[in-house]
């Protein structure tokens, strides 16, 4: 990625999403709290989900992280609301697999498409997927209970 491409990407997509993230606040009354943590860079978010009857009724998040991880988690929060637990897991699995570059993902969602394109940004894939991995892992464990 050239510097010009990087600047366009940040200016048009990442900075706006990270400066005005969706549902970026602590949500103490949530019945499911998931921690997304990247020990290498120190990024740490709490994901607050309100789940009832197997559906994510609301998703909030709060914490410390880079612009990419914040934008990614913001998109995640918006995408999972209203989805059933198994739909969130399927979305998470597909999205994470797509970041390897091996398994293509057919996105009809513009935000996910942008996130997926960021996989070509060397060294930052962990920033994109940390929250996605955390929520998918946690909800899979919920499914197995």
């Amino acid at each position: 990625m050239t510097k010009e491409e990087l600047e366009i990407l940040y200016k048009s997509k990442i900075i706006p999403a990270s400066k005005e993230p969706y549902h970026f606040e602590k949500h103490a009354q949530a019945n499911t709290v998931i921690e997304a943590y990247n020990p290498i860079c120190g990024d740490k978010y709490q994901l607050y989900l309100d789940m009832s009857e197997g559906v994510v009724q609301s998703a909030y998040f709060h914490g410390f992280g880079c612009a990419i991880s914040k934008a990614s988690t913001s998109i995640l929060a918006r995408k999972v609301e209203g989805k059933r637990l198994e739909e969130v897991v399927a979305l998470g699995d597909t999205f994470i697999a797509s970041l390897t570059g091996i398994t293509p993902m057919d996105f009809d969602d513009e935000c996910l498409k942008i996130l997926n394109e960021l996989k070509n940004f060397d060294g930052r894939v962990d920033c994109i997927k940390s929250s996605w991995e955390a929520i998918t892992h946690h909800l899979k464990e919920e499914q197995w209970k």
Binding site: L6, Y10, C41, D43, C66, A67, S69, F121, R124, C127
Partner: peptide, 11 residues
């Protein structure tokens, strides 16, 4: 964030 700084410095 430091990661964003590092990415730009890398360029």
């Amino acid at each position: 964030h430091p990661h964003d700084v590092a990415s730009f410095l890398n360029q």
